[in-house]
Simulated assay, not measured.
Amino acid sequence: MAISLSKGQKIDLTKTNPGLSKVIVGLGWDTNRYDGGHDFDLDCSIFLLGANGKCASEKDFVFYNQLEGGNGSVVHTGDNRTGAGDGDDEQVKVDLAAVPAQVERISFVITIHDAEARGQNFGQVSNAFCRVVNEETNQEIIRYDLGEDFSIETAIIVGELYRHNGEWKFSAVGSGYQGGLARIATDFGLDVG
């Protein structure tokens, strides 16, 4: 039975699940009725952050054009351009034991592709969620449903895996941004010029 989290909650991952080393972070969403004439394409991006809360280089940014990071310990399984169907829309595989020591946090972000040009925002998105699954057993460990807290935002930091005293934990962040992926990438120390 998965533990359901609310915004701001944190939970132990490896301490309460001994032997857990490989997880799948699944992200999903639905789009509300929308008749703006454009497709609605949401994307998952992952930032591998050091102690300073920044990416050391562009190699610490994982997304649909760079599917691996952290020496192969973080793997994005590919872009879903429609979000159609049930279950996870995009997935990220994380080998916790192989994440480089300098990476202290792995931040999971959902953005709306080309949101400003298309006049789209998270007010038009529903049923967004993030879940953490044990890759070996396929058992869902944690689930975080984002609710309908967002309206004008075009990007959301959904959650983070982070190290604490040698154990991995998960934080349900749920923090919305305007300015899309570029704004978050800049905040995480990347030059997106």
Rank of each mutant, 00 (worst) to 15 (best):
L146F: 13
G119S: 09
N80Q: 03
D145W: 03
R81V: 07
K59Q: 13
S171G: 11
G87R: 07
R143Q: 13
N134C: 09
A2G: 00
S151K: 15
L42D: 01
S45A: 14
A98R: 14
F47P: 00
L49Q: 04
E135Y: 00
L27Q: 08
S6H: 09
Q9F: 09
R131D: 09
T137V: 06
T77V: 02
S45H: 09
C55D: 02
F129V: 05
D12V: 00
F129T: 05
H113T: 07
I3M: 07
N17G: 04
C44A: 13
L49W: 11
G179D: 10
V92W: 06
L161D: 02
V23P: 07
V158A: 12
R105E: 10
G53S: 11
A155C: 15
G70A: 10
E153R: 02
L146S: 05
V132K: 00
G28M: 03
N80P: 00
L146C: 07
R163N: 08
F150R: 07
F150L: 05
L48F: 11
V25S: 01
I141N: 03
K93G: 07
A84I: 01
E140F: 00
V132P: 01
S175C: 13
G166E: 03
S107M: 13
S151F: 10
F40S: 04
A172K: 01
L5P: 06
E68L: 12
K54T: 06
W29H: 07
E90R: 08
I110P: 00
V133I: 15
E116H: 09
A115T: 06
E136M: 06
S57R: 09
D35Y: 12
G70I: 10
K93Y: 06
N134F: 04
G179L: 10
P100I: 06
G174N: 10
E90V: 04
N80I: 00
N80W: 01
A101R: 11
G85L: 01
L67N: 13
E104G: 14
V132C: 06
G8A: 08
G83F: 03
F61M: 14
F129S: 03
D89Y: 06
D191Y: 09
V25C: 03
R163Q: 12
G70S: 09
D60A: 14
T154V: 08
I142Y: 02
W168S: 03
D191T: 12
Q91Y: 02
E153G: 05
R131H: 08
V92D: 01
G37M: 09
A98T: 02
V23M: 08
I112C: 05
G193E: 13
G36A: 09
D41W: 04
G72R: 13
F47C: 05
